[in-house]
Simulated assay, not measured.
Amino acid sequence: MKQITATGTTMDEAIESALKQLQTSKDQVDVHVIDEGKKGFLGFGSKPAIVQVSIRKNPVQDAESFIQDVAAQMGAPVTIKTDVKDRDIMMDLESDKVAMLIGKRGQTLNSLQYLAQLVINRESNQFYTVMIDAEGYRGRRRETLESLAERLADKAIRTGKDVRIEPMPSYERKIIHSVLQNNREVETYSDGKEPRRFVVIRPSR
């Protein structure tokens, strides 16, 4: 964290001096007042104001830097486009080696997403939800899961037996539940413990 101590005849002047040296704006810093200073009388007995100004950490930038470092170590340099809406953060990765970043069934992408969320929330006083996509993978994966849900629901109905789906992250399990929530012939529930939690499709009884 960049930090500087500055002085001025007033607190505002001291803060302004610090902002110029840090090349930033007031909304990007935290200010700690060391001494409010004293005007004195006719120039006698005056004391300068002293402030300590620190650039506020940007958790989103920290997460972007983390992902870029990991991707570089994997040999898949990446460009990141980030969109923040309230407490939802969407990151889209672009790379010439995007398949490496996605991994088998999105496992590498899911791991990056989990770690990025840890980085963003480790020093934040509010919780942010992070979603990481890579060149449209999430949309394609959703279509695959929707088709899988319908196919396995038919299997459960046909055989009269529970069908257990492979472990997947919570947001992918939600897709399965959502697709089948209006199907009166089956019911769904999640079982197991993270990170091996899975969905079970059960014929309605």
Rank of each mutant, 00 (worst) to 15 (best):
S65H: 11
I67F: 02
I67M: 11
D69L: 14
D69K: 13
V70S: 02
A71L: 06
A72S: 13
P77G: 09
P77W: 06
P77D: 10
K81C: 03
V84P: 00
K85V: 14
K85T: 15
K85W: 00
R87D: 13
I89G: 04
M90H: 14
M91D: 08
M91I: 12
D92W: 08
D92V: 14
D92S: 14
L93N: 06
L93A: 08
E94N: 14
E94H: 14
D96C: 00
K97L: 12
K97G: 10
A99W: 03
L101G: 03
L101M: 06
L101W: 01
L101H: 04
I102S: 00
I102T: 00
R105N: 10
G106Q: 08
Q107S: 15
T108K: 09
T108V: 14
N110T: 08
L112M: 04
A116G: 08
Q117H: 03
L118T: 13
I120V: 15
E123I: 04
S124G: 04
N125V: 13
N125W: 13
N125C: 06
Q126T: 13
F127S: 13
V130E: 02
I132Q: 09
G136D: 07
R138P: 04
G139R: 13
R140T: 12
R142T: 13
T144Y: 11
L145F: 03
A149E: 09
A149Q: 10
A149L: 07
E150W: 02
L152I: 12
A153I: 12
D154V: 13
D154L: 11
K155D: 05
I157P: 06
I157Q: 08
I157R: 05
T159Y: 05
G160A: 03
G160I: 08
E166T: 11
E166F: 03
P167R: 00
P167M: 08
P167Y: 06
M168R: 07
M168N: 09
S170F: 10
S170C: 08
Y171P: 07
Y171A: 04
Y171V: 11
E172Y: 01
R173F: 01
R173A: 00
I176E: 06
I176W: 04
H177E: 10
H177A: 11
S178F: 05
N183M: 00
R184I: 08
R184V: 06
R184G: 01
E185S: 12
E185N: 14
E185D: 14
E187Y: 11
T188E: 02
S190N: 04
K193R: 12
K193A: 15
E194K: 10
E194W: 05
E194G: 11
